[in-house]
Design a binder for these strands. Sequence first.
DNA 1: CTGTTAGCGCGTTCAT
DNA 2: ATGAACGCGCTAACAG
Lengths: 341, 341
Amino acid sequence: MARVAGVSLATASRVVSKSSYRVSDATRRKVESAVAELDYSPSALARALATRRSRLLGIVVGDITDPYFSEIARGVEDVARANGYLSIVCNTDRTASTELRYVEMLRDYHAAAVIFAGGGREDDRDRAALEHAVRQLEDRGTRVIALIPRDFPALGVGIDNRAACADLARHLIALGHRRIAYIDGPPGLTTSRLRMEGFRDTLAAAGLTPFAVFPGNYDYESGLEVAARIARDVLPDAVLASHDATAVGVLTGLQEFGIRVPDRLSVAGMGGLREAGLLGLTTVQFPMRRLGIEAARLALAEGETGPEPIVLPHELIARRSTAPRLTTRQTAGPTDVEGIL
Amino acid sequence: MARVAGVSLATASRVVSKSSYRVSDATRRKVESAVAELDYSPSALARALATRRSRLLGIVVGDITDPYFSEIARGVEDVARANGYLSIVCNTDRTASTELRYVEMLRDYHAAAVIFAGGGREDDRDRAALEHAVRQLEDRGTRVIALIPRDFPALGVGIDNRAACADLARHLIALGHRRIAYIDGPPGLTTSRLRMEGFRDTLAAAGLTPFAVFPGNYDYESGLEVAARIARDVLPDAVLASHDATAVGVLTGLQEFGIRVPDRLSVAGMGGLREAGLLGLTTVQFPMRRLGIEAARLALAEGETGPEPIVLPHELIARRSTAPRLTTRQTAGPTDVEGIL
DNA sequence: CTGTTAGCGCGTTCAT
DNA sequence: ATGAACGCGCTAACAG
């Protein structure tokens, strides 16, 4: 193509790659017309090879199907696109080995940066291997960003899981509830631990002890099970689930037993899922998309940023699944119409 | 690295790239130990440049945040990973220009294949440009797969939008409903047209005419609006929404007006969203993940496949949002407990 | 301002 | 079975 333009490869490269080089308008025009004529487009691959810098951005998530992750990915992708980067999404299914494999592939493609969404596990046996792979990444010049908390050193951005759960607990206590049950997250996950700590500490500060702590898995089924158990046994004043999906499960399960929320007990979740809004579930909303955006900004930023992680604010959204304890409310009114649910 | 192995670059390449070449076990071992020692890994970029074939798979979606798309992406990614490919997801926001831009980037990276999820627009002014870009892709040897219907020629896989909507209409008619309203999808979308046709044709075949056809946008808000309109006016026997999100909007809106579903009227949606199950919404479930899987298989398949598109089956899931017309049902029973909704 | 040259890190002929 | 050389398409250094 440089040939049909009648110039040398170098000049052609200079105009095509928009390098801040001085090129006369005349030759520039010649090249441009040649480009148009040949329908030419430069090979990003070759460029990356020569530059040692690709414009590929890796984002490793647990499962893109999970609304949290897809929202994060969307945020990342938005700024990636704005900067001419392509986003590679990697589903790890929370499995260390596939996560590792992906990291290696991203390294082989000289990804400009990789963003680890999804928290780390605290019981990870492959941590050493991962840490090694991450180091390799950095050695090759790719930036690594982590949505904290993560089990390897990396600058990052995140949310305050502990504080969020604490806020929720305080909300429940403020409503007069004392016998508060908690549904834990998957064992070994850092976020599980943090949220649990937020719950326990807040209760302790109020001189309370948990009514019960049920195991959970950040999913719908966990909620159903808990609902069945408390329905057959003693009802707490409130149940705080460490995940919206679980809280929705509680709501559904309770309803099958004819136990009305919030009349008989309050229910709250965490995350800010669409379903939460739909069912009137009290929750804390996490700014997932912003999280992705900030992470991508960090990833693409030229200047080195300080090691202190950015912490984005969450928001407590009180809805009709939580209400003051021991209140006699009317069962009429627009917010309490019987639906098909 | 070939140096420390004590062999030539060629032999090293032969073992690293697993080429079906004859290499003696002795030298192979030498190379392998050198690889391990140096923590060496081949550059996928250089390989792609030399081979003229990358292991990058592009998947262009409307919005990864949309459960349909994320499910498709997941399916694609699953088979991509199994074959050692990386998946690049591109959010077009249903905008032709950004879709075009992405296609160009994917071409520059010599993507092995690109899968177009998300249907085409019928009013697309940039169709020519897109078609051109797609042709360029194919010229460079990248396969292009489309989740039909699409506005440019490509082999593909899809679902039968028309039949799905027809099934729903038949279901409603079989329940005895005659005055059936429809909520359309976004104008200009091929899927909108197809679904609408399925609805109209089925009604016509039964000697019925639509009670009303409301404009919609495949979203929640459209449903709310329709609910408000029919609540203040005459209630149809049933409303069929072209999208689950819209149907959920109808449900929510109706309930705010104290209109009980399915007592007063039936409601159905399309898609198979999680929320549909949660709220007991009758719908057709589309096998989105399978769609992605099949698309990826096509994309990665070596042999040429026939031009006839694969059509995956959908499934009508009748739930409690639809019921026979003019039936007096008791308002008790476990499926009809008043919830917080 | 523009042309020449030398890699980037691989795969792939050809010889040997 | 192995080694030498060339090319993939582009950028970067150095001349002119």
